[in-house]
């Protein structure tokens, strides 16, 4: 007579083994630290690590959220250089229409920069 058993029992056993494999070393390390290795806290040891220097000031410095416009303008011109590079490489073999299209593209971006400048976004307050 075959023994009835739940086929999922094996998965449970493997899962317990897997958890034990992960937690066991942690518990062993914890026991080692508690029982054998004495704790030696200290002002320097507990201090914030700043490449060996003493940390100065507060880490909770606030930045004005309006500076995101800076980031956007930077991103736009960053992408522009990616477009300009193949344009410059293929410049001599380009037809006049492509050149004018590129000029229009550049003009649009410069226009945006002028607009941002006039709005006073480029002034760091």
């Amino acid at each position: 007579m075959p023994v009835e058993y739940n086929p999922y029992v094996l998965i449970v056993v493997l899962m317990i083994a897997a958890i034990g494999f992960a937690v066991g070393p942690l518990l062993m390390a914890y026991a080692w630290a508690k029982l054998i290795s004495p704790r030696k806290p200290g002002a320097d040891k507990q201090a914030t690590y700043e490449c060996g220097l003493e940390s100065k000031g507060d880490a909770w410095v606030q930045f004005r959220s309006e500076y995101y416009l800076y980031a956007i303008i930077f991103l736009i011109f960053d992408v522009e250089t990616i477009f300009l590079l193949p344009f410059a490489v293929a410049f001599t073999s380009l037809p006049a229409g492509a050149f004018i299209a590129m000029l229009v593209f550049l003009l649009l971006l410069v226009e945006g920069l002028v607009w941002a400048w006039q709005k006073g976004i480029l002034t760091w307050k």
């Binding site: 290795s37 200290g42 320097d44 040891k45 201090a47 690590y49 060996g52 220097l53 003493e54």
Partner: peptide, 30 residues
Amino acid sequence: PRQADLMIVAGTVTKKMLPQVVRLYNQMPE
């Protein structure tokens, strides 16, 4: 330094640099 066991003092230690070296050594766990 929190993850290090060994400090290799590789080079000239100036008196300006020494406090940082000692502080890094202090911040290493035993």
